[in-house]
Design a protein around this nucleic acid. Structure first.
Lengths: 189, 189
DNA sequence: CCAATTTACTTGACGCTTGAAGTGAATGGG
DNA sequence: CCCATTCACTTCAAGCGTCAAGTAAATTGG
């Protein structure tokens, strides 16, 4: 990924818009060898882990990880109900994507949509009985997969460190976002 | 994601295929609160970071991160050339995906395909002059983005820890894979 | 109380990825 | 030498996600 100098033509003399002139250590143009290694590892993880989650859930329940996430978040609510917009936020999805996915889940009888009584613009997604059964059935295996691939692969300290690191990155990605779902239980209404 | 007990109907009595009976600490069915938090952070990262990389490269060069990766790996070779299969491995892509993407890059004049002289089955992807110019031009900004979002967001110790953690996870994802691209320069031929 | 704006969601066209064939080229017995 | 198999790659038909509208309800301001 050209995080180190090109092994090719005049590379380190590449012309480019110089960034902020006043950097502390004047961050070098390329990554150091060890930085590059970590970055490529993360990129590999980005490509591999979602595929593994989809594979497990696809095998065991015919669901994608995203579909599972939608149903799982619903299952955690006392009324197995959530507004579409809130659900989109929780699952890191665009409204459009969520709309399409919920439509498909509805066709499969796993979720139902009802107009929100409080706000005519909103739609509530409700987990059906069958949807709940599906989640309850597949969740243990899914959690086992997550344990096996991630949680149990690391020491508790590593896990905590990784969590902190991800927080830092997420703050840079979305400066306004609360990453820790703590006091978002009563979203808007 | 139902990594904690459902807030709903009889959840912890959920019937499911009991896993290996003899676990050390009999890993609980659900995740602990702090484990769940870390996991959800990782999931959010998985959804957010690739989008951010695509956004930056799309704005600056009309490229996806994957397209950039393809060209960047080529640019790092003395002959700006790589076999399709090797390139697919480096970019964590299926052969099909790579084939489609290289076809598009070829139509845009950024990459060229030539039959491999040593093996009639193989195809070599070669970066064109324009392709190399594009990479050289956009790489500094891309690296800056990576620095800003990841490398510089963490202390060197955090970065190293994160690298080690990812290694552990990647080993579980793909037990046969060398994550550290060290002695894979001479792939198979 | 009405017009303009904002909010919540849905739809449709388009592009990309996937997975299942399909094409040649190279190998490896028999 | 030849047939079967494997390998490297490409293609095609689905399916999914995204972006740009579009609809309808709520809010805001005059």
């Amino acid at each position: 990924m050209t995080y180190a100098p090109d092994a090719d033509s005049g590379s380190d003399s590449a012309p480019d818009a110089d960034p902020g002139a006043g950097q502390q250590e004047a961050a070098p143009q390329w990554l150091a060898e060890d930085q590059r290694t970590v970055w490529l590892g993360l990129v590999r993880l980005l490509a591999t882990l979602p595929a593994a989650l989809d594979a497990q859930l696809g095998r065991d329940a015919g669901l994608t990880f995203f579909e599972y996430s939608v149903m799982a978040f619903l299952s955690e609510r006392p009324e197995v109900t959530l507004r579409m917009s809130e659900l989109a936020r929780l699952t890191n999805a665009s409204q459009s994507r969520l709309s399409n996915v919920v439509k498909r889940l509805e066709q499969r009888g796993l979720v139902r949509r009802v107009p929100c009584p409080d706000d005519g613009r909103s739609t509530l997604a409700v987990l059906t009985e069958e949807g709940l059964r599906t989640v309850v059935e597949v969740a243990p295996r899914h959690v086992r997969t997550v344990r096996h691939l991630v949680v149990d692969a690391l020491t508790p300290e590593q896990l905590a460190e990784m969590g902190a690191a991800h927080e830092s990155i997420l703050r840079r990605l979305d400066p306004g976002a609360r990453t820790d779902p703590r006091r978002l239980d009563r979203p808007g209404t």
